[in-house]
Simulated assay, not measured.
Amino acid sequence: MPTKRGLLIAGAGLLAAPAIAQQRVTRLLVTFPPGGSTDILGRIIAPAIERHLGHTVVVDNRGGANGAVAMAALASAPADGSTFALDAGGATTNPHLMRGLGFDYATAFAPVTQATILPALLIVRGDSPIRDFQGFVAHARANPGQVSYGSSGVGTGSHLAGALLMRRAQLQATHVPYRGGADQLTSIRRGDTITTFSTIPTIAGLIRDGAIRPLVASTPQRARAYPDVPTVAESGFAGFSIYDFHAIYAPANTPSEAVSRMASAVRAAMNDPELQQRFLSLGLEPAAHGPEAFATFLRQRREEMGALIQAEGIRLEG
């Protein structure tokens, strides 16, 4: 027959069970340092994910190697639904640019969901005589080999978008890589380079001040923040589409139930009307899809980026 002390212990255990369950924590690795769009997005959606999952979500910044440092940590994390990663577009480009990663992007992760589209705009200096995209193409064709386009570094989204545009338009142009977006934009304002692709969060203030002028958007549809700026696709190059995006990943073999729960939580966050206004003000366009749709997109985009990188002979130093 159970003793009184035994019943008290059992009762205490039952009372403690909900508290123990509430102590569960999900870790969200963010693949870039604090302050950038990936980090900002993670910190906006983490509380919304918490509300959906019913337990704490901790943001853990692991910047480095265009996201590969954090993704290496994710690859070795337990596949129990306790750890996820928020990455930008590195999962589609790093496999083709980096060697010796220690993991395979194609097999080490379970795609959870895309979260955003991050449109890039082709820009020129605000006082440039080039007024529109057609004027840029005409100028480049009239001056073969004398047009230069900047980027935030070899193999970055701005580099690949510029390379794809020059290839599709059959323009002879010189790529000039810089160490980050700040130097990339300074080169435009000084006139060292004529044009570059840059994401909206980086250039919104410069556009507002008239320091730079947007010509076209890199996305299939016009950027919601700049609906008057046409796309490359509607400006004579049908099918042109290249852009960064944010997405959530889990370690491979994470239970499908955990993957689906996280996908639903992210989708709820991205569809929240109040949060959507915050995203759009940052130039982030919500685009939450389920695991299957995202996995298909990821395979296609990785193949496209691999073909472009190989065709351009792009290599990272070191």
Score class of each variant (00 low, 15 high):
R301N: 15
L185P: 00
Q114L: 10
V147R: 01
G89P: 03
E257Q: 15
G236F: 12
G64R: 14
R189P: 01
L282H: 14
V30Y: 11
G6F: 05
A79S: 15
P220W: 00
A311T: 13
M1D: 03
L101V: 13
A293F: 01
A16E: 07
I188W: 04
F84S: 09
P273R: 11
A211H: 11
V112K: 04
N66M: 09
P255W: 04
F240R: 10
T3N: 09
M98G: 03
A65H: 05
T193A: 12
T116Y: 06
D228K: 12
E304W: 10
F103C: 03
L275P: 13
L118V: 12
F297L: 12
M71C: 08
T219W: 00
D127P: 02
H175F: 11
L284H: 09
P111M: 14
A21V: 13
Y226A: 07
R51G: 07
F237N: 01
G290Y: 10
V259I: 15
A269T: 05
D60F: 04
M98E: 14
E257C: 00
A307F: 12
P177L: 09
R302K: 12
V30D: 02
I194L: 15
A163Q: 02
V124N: 03
A182K: 08
L275Q: 15
L29Q: 01
T83D: 04
G90N: 12
F297Q: 15
P255K: 07
G63V: 07
N271K: 02
A211Y: 13
I314V: 15
T195G: 03
L316Q: 13
H289W: 05
A225F: 00
Q172M: 06
Q310D: 14
D80A: 12
G102Y: 07
A311F: 06
G54T: 06
A68K: 09
L121D: 06
R24S: 12
I314D: 04
D272G: 11
R125N: 08
G145W: 00
A72D: 02
D209C: 05
L206F: 09
P230V: 10
A17M: 12
G155R: 08
L171C: 06
R208V: 01
Q114V: 08
V58G: 02
L280H: 14
L275S: 07
I248A: 03
I200Q: 02
S264P: 00
T3I: 07
P78I: 13
F109P: 00
F133P: 00
A258W: 03
A311M: 04
